[in-house]
Lab assay of single mutants.
Amino acid sequence: QEELVKAFKALLKEEKFSSQGEIVAALQEQGFDNINQSKVSRMLTKFGAVRTRNAKMEMVYCLPAELGV
């Protein structure tokens, strides 16, 4: 569980995922086979993730800066 949270936060820091499906796929690539869209959705809510525009003006998920991840 701890490893999943770390990987999840690291992915969001990249600010390149525009959908929950993309986050699920990226986590599965890292070996988290039991991850699915509903789990990702709950984690996004739990950590207060928001959708914002990145440098390329794409809408992407990211974590609020005050979490200091």
Rank of each mutant, 00 (worst) to 15 (best):
A26H: 13
V40L: 05
G68Q: 11
E66K: 05
S19C: 04
K13Q: 10
A49K: 02
R53Y: 15
M59V: 09
P64G: 05
L11F: 05
A25Q: 12
E3S: 12
F47I: 12
V24M: 07
L4A: 03
K56G: 07
N36F: 04
E3F: 10
E2C: 15
R51F: 15
E58K: 08
V40H: 00
M59Q: 05
T45Q: 12
K56I: 05
D33F: 13
V24L: 10
S18V: 11
F47V: 11
F17L: 06
S19Q: 08
S18D: 04
L12M: 06
Q37I: 12
K56T: 06
K6R: 13
R42L: 14
V50P: 02
A65G: 13
A10Q: 13
A25N: 10
T45W: 07
I35A: 06
V24G: 03
M57T: 04
R53W: 11
Q30F: 07
L4Y: 04
P64E: 04
S19G: 06
A25G: 07
R42N: 13
G48F: 03
A10H: 09
E29Q: 12
M59Y: 14
T52W: 06
R53A: 13
C62Q: 08
E2S: 11
K39A: 13
R51Q: 10
S38P: 09
E2Y: 10
L4D: 01
L67W: 04
T52Q: 15
S41G: 10
A49Y: 04
R51L: 15
T45S: 11
M57F: 12
D33H: 13
M59R: 03
L11G: 01
N54C: 03
A10E: 12
S19H: 11
K39D: 15
G68I: 08
E66M: 06
L11P: 00
F17W: 09
K39R: 12
A26D: 03
V50W: 05
V69H: 12
K46C: 06
D33V: 13
T52A: 14
S18F: 06
E22S: 11
A7H: 06
R42T: 13
Q20A: 13
E58G: 05
E58I: 08
I35V: 13
E15A: 14
K16P: 06
N36S: 11
K56V: 07
L11T: 03
L67K: 14
A7D: 01
V69Q: 15
A49L: 02
Q28L: 12
V24I: 08
E22P: 03
K56C: 02
N34A: 09
K16Q: 07
A10G: 10
S41A: 14
Q1P: 10
V24Y: 05
E14D: 07
A26W: 08
K9R: 09
F47S: 04
E22C: 03
A10R: 08
Q30H: 07
S38N: 13
F32G: 00
Q20H: 09
G31A: 03
G48Y: 03
M43P: 00
L44T: 01
I23S: 00
L67R: 08
G21S: 14
F47Q: 04
A25H: 10
M43W: 07
A7V: 09
P64A: 05
G68H: 07
K9D: 03
Q20D: 08
F17E: 01
L63A: 03
Y61F: 07
S18L: 08
V5H: 14
P64R: 06
S41N: 11
L27N: 00
Q30R: 09
E22A: 10
M43A: 02
K6D: 08
F8H: 00
L11M: 09
S18I: 08
F47Y: 11
S41T: 08
F47H: 09
A25C: 06
A65E: 14
F17H: 06
E29V: 09
Y61G: 02
E3A: 13
V69Y: 05
E3G: 10
E15H: 06
C62W: 06
F8R: 00
K9P: 00
M59H: 06
V5T: 10
G21V: 13
E14P: 02
S41R: 14
I23Y: 02
F17P: 03
A49Q: 02
N34R: 09
T52C: 15
K56S: 10
L27K: 00
S18H: 11
E29L: 10
Q1L: 10
A25P: 00
L12P: 00
R51N: 03
S19N: 09
K56N: 13
K16M: 08
Q37E: 14
A55G: 09
V69S: 15
I35R: 00
S38F: 13
V60R: 03
T52I: 12
E66L: 05
A65P: 15
L11Y: 03
D33I: 12
M43K: 00
G31D: 02
Q20Y: 09
Y61R: 01
E3Q: 12
E22I: 03
R42G: 12
L4I: 08
V60D: 01
E29C: 06
S38K: 13
S38M: 11
L11C: 04
G31P: 00
A65F: 12
V60I: 06
E66N: 09
G21I: 12
L63F: 07
I23D: 00
A55M: 06
K56H: 11
K39F: 12
N34H: 14
G48K: 10
V60F: 03
G68D: 15
K6S: 11
N54S: 04
R51G: 03
L63M: 09
A65M: 10
A7T: 07
M43Y: 06
D33E: 12
V69L: 07
L63H: 02
G31R: 03
E66D: 12
V69A: 13
E66A: 07
K46F: 14
V50A: 07
E29F: 08
V69G: 15
F47R: 01
K56W: 06
S41C: 05
N34M: 09
E15Y: 06
F32W: 09
I23N: 01
I23Q: 00
K6Q: 13
F47G: 02
F8V: 07
Q37R: 15
